[in-house]
Amino acid sequence: MKQLRVTLKIASSLDGRIALADGTSQWITSADSRARGHRMRAEHDAIMVGIGTVLADDPLLTARTVPLPARQPMRIVADSQARLPPASRLARSADLGRVIAVTAGGPGGGALEAAGVEIWRCGNGVRMSVTDFVRRAEAEGLRTLLLEGGSTLAASFLRAGLVDEIAWFRAPILIGGDGLPAAGSLGLMDLKSAARWRPVATERIGDDVLDTYVRSEH
């Protein structure tokens, strides 16, 4: 039985877009929603994003709460081909807490390890396996994981049935069909195959809305 509880955090427009067509996403939701997101980070053992998010935004991924948390969550990048730049803010801030690059298992990553980034090899040498990653995370003692993006990483965990909860922040704007979707392809052939989610909470945060869902058993 899976022990790692995975929460997918989405910050989107009303029509479910997380960025413009060119990847611009700062900032869709409000400062108050982003502050709430930092509190969510502080409540989890680890934060995970895809390498595309890192290359586009160069995030730090720390929990910047007031006051700061006693311990920063582990920061994890899904990075099949070890493309995380050693000069990125993540790699250069390994002294703030553990930074992990999860690769597909092939060669490479030496420069990252020299910069203080840990390499977890979880895959077949070509593609990272989210199920292998979850097993490694559990072996490392992680119990809660916050997925923050992007759409490819979200879809990988959703396809594998590994997401337990969705925290969906929606801003009162429309981006349109040329924007980037909250989740990539799920490969559904019919609606009966779609996972069902049960709404458990709705919260107004200024003009934004935070909806929380848990996976339905039915």
Rank of each mutant, 00 (worst) to 15 (best):
5 R>P: 01
135 R>C: 12
183 A>S: 14
87 A>N: 05
50 G>C: 11
9 K>S: 09
100 I>V: 15
154 A>F: 12
173 I>L: 15
76 I>K: 04
57 D>M: 06
34 R>N: 14
42 A>Q: 06
170 R>Y: 03
11 A>K: 07
210 L>V: 05
198 R>K: 13
13 S>E: 13
20 L>F: 07
148 E>H: 14
175 I>L: 15
51 I>N: 02
130 V>D: 14
50 G>R: 06
153 L>S: 10
204 R>L: 13
3 Q>S: 12
198 R>Y: 00
8 L>Q: 14
22 D>E: 09
45 D>R: 04
15 D>M: 11
4 L>E: 04
76 I>L: 08
38 H>N: 11
155 A>P: 01
18 I>K: 03
73 P>Y: 01
90 L>Y: 09
23 G>S: 04
26 Q>W: 04
69 P>S: 08
123 G>Y: 06
63 A>V: 06
34 R>P: 00
199 P>L: 15
116 G>V: 07
112 L>W: 04
15 D>A: 07
214 V>I: 14
188 L>W: 05
166 I>F: 01
33 S>P: 01
165 E>W: 01
90 L>N: 10
152 T>D: 15
138 E>H: 05
38 H>M: 12
62 T>G: 07
39 R>P: 00
22 D>H: 03
173 I>H: 04
55 L>I: 12
106 G>P: 03
81 Q>M: 11
105 G>I: 07
68 L>N: 05
198 R>E: 15
216 S>M: 09
33 S>C: 11
111 A>R: 09
114 A>M: 06
53 T>E: 13
93 S>L: 08
162 L>K: 05
140 E>F: 10
117 V>G: 06
93 S>V: 05
2 K>V: 09
138 E>K: 03
66 V>K: 09
48 M>Y: 04
137 A>G: 05
13 S>G: 11
133 F>K: 03
151 S>A: 15
131 T>I: 14
148 E>V: 15
3 Q>A: 10
119 I>H: 06
27 W>K: 11
182 A>K: 03
143 R>V: 02
97 G>K: 08
183 A>W: 01
63 A>L: 06
108 G>N: 08
205 I>D: 10
2 K>F: 10
3 Q>V: 04
17 R>H: 02
208 D>N: 05
102 V>Q: 03
93 S>F: 02
2 K>R: 14
124 N>G: 13
127 R>S: 10
12 S>A: 15
117 V>E: 09
212 T>Y: 02
180 L>M: 11
138 E>W: 09
69 P>A: 06
142 L>V: 04
168 W>G: 08
134 V>D: 05
25 S>D: 05
88 S>G: 08
47 I>L: 15
202 T>D: 07
109 G>V: 09
175 I>P: 00
134 V>I: 15
143 R>D: 03
44 H>A: 14
38 H>G: 02
140 E>R: 12
199 P>H: 08
12 S>T: 12
